[in-house]
Design a protein around this nucleic acid. Sequence first.
DNA 1: CGCGTGCTTGAACATTATCAAACAGTGTGG
DNA 2: CCACACTGTTTGATAATGTTCAAGCACGCG
Lengths: 234, 234
Amino acid sequence: MSAAAALQPTASRARAGYLTPVPTPPPAAVVGAGLDRLGTVTMIERGRMLIQEQDPAEHVFKVLSGALRAVRLLPDGRRYITEFLLPGDYVGLAENGAYSQTIEAVADTKAIKYSRRRFDAFLDSDARAGRHFFGLVCGELSAAQDRLLLLGRKSALERMASFLLAIADRRSPDATAVDLPMSRSDIADYLGLTIETVSRVLGQLRTREIIDVPTVSRIVFTDRAALEDIGAGE
Amino acid sequence: MSAAAALQPTASRARAGYLTPVPTPPPAAVVGAGLDRLGTVTMIERGRMLIQEQDPAEHVFKVLSGALRAVRLLPDGRRYITEFLLPGDYVGLAENGAYSQTIEAVADTKAIKYSRRRFDAFLDSDARAGRHFFGLVCGELSAAQDRLLLLGRKSALERMASFLLAIADRRSPDATAVDLPMSRSDIADYLGLTIETVSRVLGQLRTREIIDVPTVSRIVFTDRAALEDIGAGE
DNA sequence: CGCGTGCTTGAACATTATCAAACAGTGTGG
DNA sequence: CCACACTGTTTGATAATGTTCAAGCACGCG
């Protein structure tokens, strides 16, 4: 843990420690309403692949319920999950040409499927919509940069604390508990750890009475302030 | 090193291992030409801060020469560099409202400075420009996701190999050498390592005669194929 | 009730971090 | 022009965090 490079004369001020949820700018409802008519509802069952990396990017999806994961692999099989897609999130927005990652269902999932042609046409027809989605992608980029900080400089314990709070906040801000739709293995591949470390770190938070784990998939925040401190990196 | 979670029935196909440079779509020259007249040239000397995190995002810059770094900090001083900005890169594009990270000069840098108001007006006035910059941000997002994979699942040696190739490719594709404008400390904070590990890993590549290091800042690719294999993760 | 998958726990190991010292390159002043 | 000092880099020895390998456990389902 601890110490990075020495502070520089130009060092910037510290920032909130845990993952920022992708913000949803005001005109979301309006833009969404215009779009909903263009798509069709699809069901993806748990474990199924929705999108294969390198396939031509012919669709955009919006998650309605359930959860998806975006996966990248190394040639020898090492796996990394770049993001979990939860209700309200768009899939395949930031793709030119071919998909850059595989999308799989972590749980049974309902999503709206748009044809990319129609989706782009809609964007071009409405300047407000274009700006809205530009803002969404900017938010995703900022969230990805927060995760770079997490992977590059945070300990296992800090990563887990950040993760639990971020997932909880995306579902409902200031929640006192979360239901995790994904397995320990998925969490490990998202946080750059192993399943054993994920388990041990959860055990440690439980021992310290910062969380309670009544079920494997349910996490109750017993001491949210402590969890936030850990996630922020002290 | 090695093994992540077990392969799943839906596991996706493997992908190129090292950092993908942000792609520059075709109409770049045209869009750039329209913009150049709107900005003024600025010099930022080595070590100076160009942008402070949380300041209102009132400007967009385009790097002409030199190099900048984008920095995020944890409360206790741990530092992470989310990206290096090299000639041709835009700074402050993907920001709504306030800057999300500090920008500092790694070397003496020349950049064009645009007012964000004018920049946005230009984007709105020209649909092609809007799409162009949307594409740029999408490319940045994809590059960030490649770095998540790097930080989450690659060893120190693999990270260094990926880094050297990525920097080299951004300057000129298939180059046989790079001049690194940044210090070991900056490289460490970019790769999520310490300066000692950076140094040792470079030493290892030199010993194995994969690179040559005639000067601290100069890296010659003696065996580019081997470097690519290492960077790709075998 | 028993089996299977996924989760937890334990012990040994590996990689990378930390602490410490030597070294190199650059610029300054004598 | 050389000696010196400063900063950044390299190298070495030790320690820590997280991984790997190996059992056990628990919950859900047939």
